[in-house]
Amino acid sequence: MAARRVISPILKYFLFFVNFIFWLAGLGLMIIGAWVLNEKQKEVRDALDFFLDPSCVMCLTGSVTVFLAMVGGMGALRENQILLKIYHYTLSTILLGEIVLAVLLFVFYYVPDARTKLQLFPEKTFNDAIVKYRDDDDMKDLIDTIQEGLQCCGLSNTDEGYKDWNKNIYFNCTDDKSVIVSSESCSVPPSCCIRKAGDLINLQCGANALKQESSKIGNTIYTDGCIKALGTWIEAHALVVGGIALGILLPQVVLICLTRNFDDQISAQKSMWKRR
């Protein structure tokens, strides 16, 4: 009499098709990211250039997704336990990293003493981003998008984030005669400006902002740093943030559980064959 088959074909092909869809999505991200990089002829000089460039991030995300989806899909289709273990261990590691990141984000905004002791604020990275604002078009576009979206100015976690622009050679405000003065000296980028719908874009709205206190220019430009503005936005949209986090983490947990279950089914099937 033939041995009873305990492996679920529904679970097997469900895992395969889900991973096939992710494989296609990852491949699409890789192709688009590579095409954009080729069109821009961008030179990646350091980690900051890489991780703050959307096309580079798309290539990296696409590559990881393609690899994981291929391992998971082939592991399910061929009932290969080695591939399945690589798949769910890697997914579990990524999930753990995301949870740690969420905890660090909570500590950063709600436990200031711990934030200082753990040195969670990547100050050097943000300083480098400010310094390279005019030297890299991608960096400029990214910072402008962040400042306009979060209604902030500068990248620090303070009420006077706009003063971060003193670190950029083009906006630097100094009385030192040996320093070359640009037409934008003592100003902030136009993306810092408070603009209502229908208003004309005024490229000079941030002129001489670095010479003034935040209380005097609060009606003209945003003064909070973007890290502080992000914390304010998270507090105001806690349910939205929770929903997004759940939408990212829950599918990973389901995939990990289903893969572990499928792996156990294969082990049970092999044990049954050995007994017979």
Rank of each mutant, 00 (worst) to 15 (best):
M1H: 10
M1L: 11
M1F: 14
I7W: 08
S8Y: 09
F14C: 03
F17S: 02
F17V: 06
N19T: 02
N19M: 07
F20C: 02
W23D: 00
L24Y: 09
L24Q: 05
A25Q: 04
L29C: 06
L29K: 12
M30E: 04
M30T: 08
I31G: 07
I32V: 07
G33N: 00
A34Q: 09
E39Q: 13
Q41E: 04
K42H: 09
V44N: 00
A47P: 11
F51V: 13
D53G: 07
C56T: 13
C56F: 10
V57A: 05
V57W: 08
V57Y: 10
L60W: 03
S63E: 06
S63M: 13
T65E: 03
V66N: 01
F67P: 12
G72W: 12
M74D: 08
A76S: 13
Q81K: 15
Y87H: 09
H88M: 13
L91Q: 13
S92V: 02
T93A: 10
I94R: 00
A102G: 12
V103Y: 01
L104S: 00
F106C: 04
V107T: 02
F108C: 10
F108L: 10
Y110S: 02
V111E: 03
P112D: 11
T116R: 08
K117E: 13
F121D: 11
P122L: 07
T125E: 15
T125L: 15
N127H: 12
D128S: 15
D128Q: 15
I130F: 15
I130G: 15
I130Y: 14
R134D: 14
D135K: 12
D135Q: 11
D141W: 10
L142Q: 04
L142M: 09
I143A: 07
D144C: 04
E148A: 14
E148M: 14
Q151C: 02
C153T: 00
C153E: 00
N157H: 09
D159G: 01
G161E: 00
Y162P: 04
K167H: 05
Y170G: 00
Y170E: 02
N172Y: 10
D175I: 02
S182Y: 06
S183I: 05
E184N: 02
E184W: 04
V188I: 04
V188Y: 05
S191P: 07
C193W: 01
K196M: 13
L200M: 12
L203N: 02
Q204V: 01
C205T: 01
G206H: 01
K211M: 04
K216P: 08
I217H: 05
T220D: 07
T220S: 04
I221W: 01
G225N: 03
C226E: 14
K228W: 00
A229I: 06
L230C: 03
L230N: 01
G231K: 01
G231N: 02
T232V: 05
I234N: 03
A238L: 12
V240S: 11
G242K: 14
I244Q: 13
I244F: 15
L249M: 07
L250W: 10
Q252P: 10
V254L: 12
I256G: 11
I256S: 09
L258R: 08
D264T: 14
I266Y: 15
I266D: 11
Q269Y: 09
S271M: 11
R276V: 13
